[in-house]
Simulated scan of single mutants.
Amino acid sequence: MTDYVDGYCERVAPGLWGEPLNSLTNLAFLVAAVLVWRLAAGDRTGRLLAALIGLVFATSTVFHLLATRWAAVGDSVGILVFALVYAVLLTRAFCRRRFAWLAAPAFLALTVVTALLGGGLYLSALIGLAAFAAVLAFERDAYWAHFAVAGAIFALSLSLRAVDRDVCDYVPAGTHFLWHLLNGVVLWLVSRVLVLKNRP
């Protein structure tokens, strides 16, 4: 678990500062966490989401600084925890509260299926955003646009993450740092929706 991980274009050798851009751009998550915390103004759901975005910031930063297998697992776990909790809170806010807890295992099952089919760990989140935007649009809920925009940004973010190693010859720093910047925006957008939805 302490083995060195060379998973991104920017990293060329072990070392604490081997991925300066990938490390620094994690600040986008911290900014998103602070903005959600301030917007929440005491709302427990908003404060919880802010704390979970803070967890994503911490785990991702540790991974890109240390580049070890255990840190990589922590990075994935931080993102997964946010996604699972968000799925429950989203279902609770827009659908039936009684069945909201089912959203977590349903999302986890979708993630496993898409991963086994070669879609990676994050395709399920894109599918979820697109599906929810479509459902809300069908129901003429004004919040559909928020999820549509978040989904479009996440699709671009996911594409940039996927091509990181392929562009090393042309872009030495790679494109993974853009994944961080854009995902900071995505987490802010989707969290903002729930904070606003919970207001009287």
Results as ranks from 00 to 15, higher is better:
110 L>P: 00
149 V>Y: 03
42 G>S: 13
139 E>V: 05
92 R>V: 01
141 D>V: 05
192 R>M: 07
2 T>N: 08
95 C>Q: 12
70 W>R: 15
128 G>M: 07
133 A>L: 06
73 V>Y: 04
113 V>P: 10
18 G>W: 01
128 G>I: 00
79 I>W: 01
150 A>V: 08
124 S>M: 08
190 V>S: 09
58 A>I: 14
138 F>G: 09
45 T>K: 00
43 D>K: 02
81 V>I: 15
29 F>A: 07
165 R>T: 10
175 T>N: 09
78 G>A: 05
58 A>L: 15
15 G>L: 04
150 A>W: 11
160 L>H: 07
26 N>V: 15
158 L>Y: 13
47 R>Q: 10
123 L>T: 15
112 V>C: 06
192 R>D: 04
20 P>K: 12
145 A>I: 14
149 V>M: 03
107 F>K: 01
139 E>W: 09
138 F>A: 14
46 G>K: 08
43 D>C: 01
169 D>P: 00
192 R>N: 01
55 L>N: 01
57 F>S: 10
55 L>D: 05
100 A>I: 06
104 A>M: 07
192 R>F: 08
103 A>C: 07
186 V>Y: 06
80 L>K: 11
148 A>I: 13
83 A>N: 10
117 L>H: 07
8 Y>L: 14
151 G>S: 03
188 W>R: 02
184 G>F: 09
124 S>A: 15
22 N>T: 08
75 D>R: 13
111 T>W: 11
148 A>G: 15
4 Y>E: 14
68 T>A: 04
48 L>W: 12
145 A>T: 15
150 A>F: 12
72 A>P: 12
178 L>G: 04
69 R>T: 11
199 R>S: 07
58 A>R: 02
108 L>W: 14
113 V>C: 10
166 D>H: 13
127 I>Y: 14
152 A>H: 02
111 T>R: 13
8 Y>R: 15
151 G>T: 08
42 G>A: 12
109 A>L: 15
48 L>A: 13
87 A>T: 14
193 V>E: 02
82 F>W: 07
78 G>T: 09
76 S>F: 00
76 S>T: 02
169 D>R: 12
33 A>E: 01
65 L>C: 04
86 Y>V: 01
25 T>R: 04
137 A>M: 08
154 F>S: 01
127 I>F: 13
68 T>R: 12
146 H>Y: 15
174 G>Y: 05
134 A>W: 12
195 V>M: 06
60 S>F: 11
65 L>T: 03
145 A>F: 15
167 V>S: 08
39 L>Y: 02
14 P>Q: 06
131 A>N: 09
5 V>S: 02
29 F>L: 03
188 W>G: 03
24 L>T: 06
68 T>E: 07
118 G>D: 07
161 R>C: 09
64 H>G: 05
55 L>P: 03
83 A>F: 06
46 G>F: 04
18 G>L: 05
175 T>H: 05
81 V>E: 06
26 N>A: 14
35 L>K: 10
58 A>T: 14
147 F>I: 05
55 L>E: 08
185 V>F: 00
29 F>K: 06
181 L>S: 11
137 A>L: 05
159 S>G: 15
150 A>R: 07
180 H>M: 14
81 V>R: 03
89 L>F: 11
160 L>V: 01
125 A>C: 11
135 V>Y: 13
61 T>K: 02
130 A>M: 12
82 F>Y: 14
